[in-house]
Write a protein that binds this DNA or RNA. Structure first.
Length: 584
RNA sequence: GGACGCGUAGCUCAGCUGGAUAGAGUACCUGGCUACGAACCAGGCGGUCGCAGGUUCGACUCCUGCCGCGUCCGCCA
């Protein structure tokens, strides 16, 4: 169900009937003011400009052909040529009843029509560096990526998750050397690696200060890349333990990534020489100052100097450029991707632009395969300066999440002291984690953002707990009313303005989901759900359900409306990876 | 130096293909719990949308220039 689309079609038909060309944009949008109707069509003014005719006259001509019988109960012409559409309450009620019975709540599924085919979408997200522990900087990629993945799946696309973990590179030399020493001293790997951050620091200190250690570290890198069996075993141990750390975070965060989704940098290792070979053979890469580089003319500066993209170091080593090119090929050839979506911070924007250009030129990325790099801003400290990853000061993700849960527990026990420990823990987890995720997911900024405990852990205002609270309130009513939540047979009637506002909002879910998957912007869904919950809160105050004197029809209708609202909240929050509960 | 991103209420942020009087939350102020959960609701206060031009019926949105902040730009990822 997409009202905007439906109205667009109707208005366009009327415009064509009024003599306008078929490619006219009806420009239908949601009205931002109640007295301008529910939807408005603004396309007439643009069209009139092109034809150099009077917009007002043209609009009245379009109105003559506009047939919204049964859909709208009032259509009016306003201002210089706005067409304001007031939707019919009975029609809205019918649509609500229809989507109430639909398991996708009216969101049409890919593949249900010929021009809306199922796509295979490869989504590259999270990608922590296994040398270190996950910190708050990894939050965005992980949860935004996961929300987009869930939205794509809810819409019916085939999604292949790819966790492009940093499990390769020179830093592993010092880590393996350090680990080797620990094992020699009879330490158990799990214990030695219990605190990755600590372990990394120790290794780094030795690398910088201890005589001979740096050479051993470099030696380990050579052995690792050369496929030395003992070294590979050591590496595998390290990787396994580090992955376990990440999995704990994913589980706590309610993120859908699993071990099967891991496709680390190391996996592309065997393919890297092949990539270089192809680039050289095709004449795309050339040797320059001992390294192999691609000169990208498309990105030349004013003086005509091309952008330089190094694909192989002068010493023969490979870079992440090489790996990302290999990944392009793997994803199109082996995974049959129709679209590739990558979530990383904005600093890598230039890099991925270069990757795309080179990959397309080399044929690793066919014309019809989409390649979307979705950047986001860096995590900054309270001082407005970037977090430094190696000098303390970083907040471990695990610590943030635990803190959120503790704070949630304080609030919940204060408001509702009767819960037993188990229930309290369960609710605290859902509320605390939800608050952290929503705080981040609800922002669209591609610019940097300042990490702030207070906003991240807030439970008041436009936060996840507000939405969860709305849901719980509804469940509470169902319990009191002894209402069967599986009963979708009740008729919804719209009388009060709060009910109409809710109806409109509920019917806009597909529109929002579509925007989320095409633009990779879960914040739109956050806004939508907050508005829905907010409308519900107003409805709750204005439209009593269980009060004496409420007719049985009204009661049933309002309960049915509540049911659809709660389903939409639950489903929407699920797309964001946030849980709801009957009581909180 | 070049490229990219950002600049909206005290603070955190929305603002969809250009649309009518620029919106939320928070903070502050005023009201509201013997009807269903006050983690809430109703209302108030708060703006030269960085600056200056341009495009047009109309610009936070598009174009140009400038200012400020940030990031990236041949051997890290």
């Amino acid at each position: 169900m997409n009202i905007k689309q439906l109205l667009s079609e109707k208005v366009l038909a009327a415009m064509i009937a009024a003599g306008l060309p078929e490619d006219t944009n009806p420009a239908v949008s949601i009205s931002n003011r109640a007295n301008f109707g529910d939807y408005q069509a603004n396309g007439v003014m643009g069209a009139a400009k092109k034809l150099k005719t009077n917009p007002r006259e043209l609009a009245s001509k379009v109105l003559e052909h506009l047939d919204l019988n049964g859909i709208a109960d009032n259509i009016e012409l306003a201002g210089p040529g706005f067409i304001n559409i007031h939707l019919d309450k009975a029609w809205l009620a019918q649509q609500l009843t229809k989507i109430s019975k639909d398991e996708y709540l009216g969101v049409s599924q890919r593949g249900s029509s010929a021009n809306d085919k199922v796509q295979t979408v490869v989504v590259d997200y999270s990608a922590p560096n296994l040398a270190k522990e996950m910190h708050v900087g990894h939050l965005r990629s992980t949860i935004i990526g996961d929300a987009v993945v869930r939205a794509l799946e809810f819409r019916g696309d085939k999604v292949i998750r790819q966790n492009h973990m940093g499990d390769w590179g020179t830093q592993f030399g010092m880590l393996l050397a350090h680990l080797s020493d620990k094992l020699q001293a009879n330490e158990v790997a799990e214990t030695a690696l219990a605190d990755l951050e600590n372990f990394y620091r120790e290794a780094k200190v030795r690398f910088d200060e201890e005589e001979g250690f740096a050479d051993r570290a470099r030696d380990y890198v050579v052995k690792l890349q050369g496929g030395d069996a003992d070294c590979a075993k050591l590496w595998q141990q390290f990787i396994d333990i580090s992955i376990t750390h990440s999995e704990e975070i994913y589980q706590k965060l309610n993120v859908t990534l699993s071990r099967d989704d891991i496709m680390g940098e190391s996996a592309y290792n065997p393919d890297l020489p092949v990539v270089i070979d192809e680039l050289m053979t095709k004449g795309i890469a050339v040797e320059d100052q001992g390294a192999k580089v691609v000169f990208i003319d498309e990105m030349a500066n004013k003086d005509g100097e091309p952008s330089v993209f190094i694909v192989q170091k002068s010493g023969g080593g490979y870079l992440y450029a090489t790996t990302d090119l290999s990944a392009c090929r793997y994803r199109t050839d082996k995974l049959n991707a129709d679209r590739i979506v990558i979530f990383t911070d904005a600093r890598q924007a230039l890099h991925f632009k270069q990757v795309e250009l080179v990959a397309r030129k080399a044929g690793f990325l066919p014309e019809n395969v989409g390649y979307d790099h979705c950047p986001f801003g860096m995590m900054m400290g309270d001082d407005g300066k970037p977090f430094k990853t190696r000098t303390g000061g970083t907040i471990k993700l695990a610590e943030l999440l635990d803190e959120a849960i503790v704070r949630a527990k304080e609030v919940i026990s204060e408001k509702n002291p009767d819960y037993d420990q188990e229930t309290l823990n369960e609710i605290s987890r859902k509320v605390g984690i939800g608050a952290v995720k929503f705080a981040d997911l609800s922002k669209n900024r591609t610019s940097d953002y300042i990490f702030n405990w207070k906003t991240m852990l807030s439970f008041e205002g436009a936060t996840a707990p507000y939405l969860q609270y709305a849901y719980s309130r509804i469940q509470s009513i169902f319990t009191k009313a002894d209402f069967n939540r599986n009963d979708d047979g009740n008729i919804i009637t719209i009388i009060e303005p709060q009910e109409k506002a809710l109806a409109l909002k509920l019917l806009q879910l597909e529109d929002v989901i579509d925007a989320v998957v095409s633009e990779c912007t879960p914040n739109l869904l956050c806004n939508y759900l907050y508005e829905l919950a907010s409308l519900y809160m107003s409805f709750y105050e204005a439209c009593p359900i269980l009060k004496e004197g409420i007719s049985s029809e009204t009661k049933q209708s309002r309960l049915a409306l509540c049911l659809l609202i709660s389903k939409t909240l639950k489903q929407g929050l699920d797309v964001l990876g946030i849980d709801v509960m009957d009581r909180m």
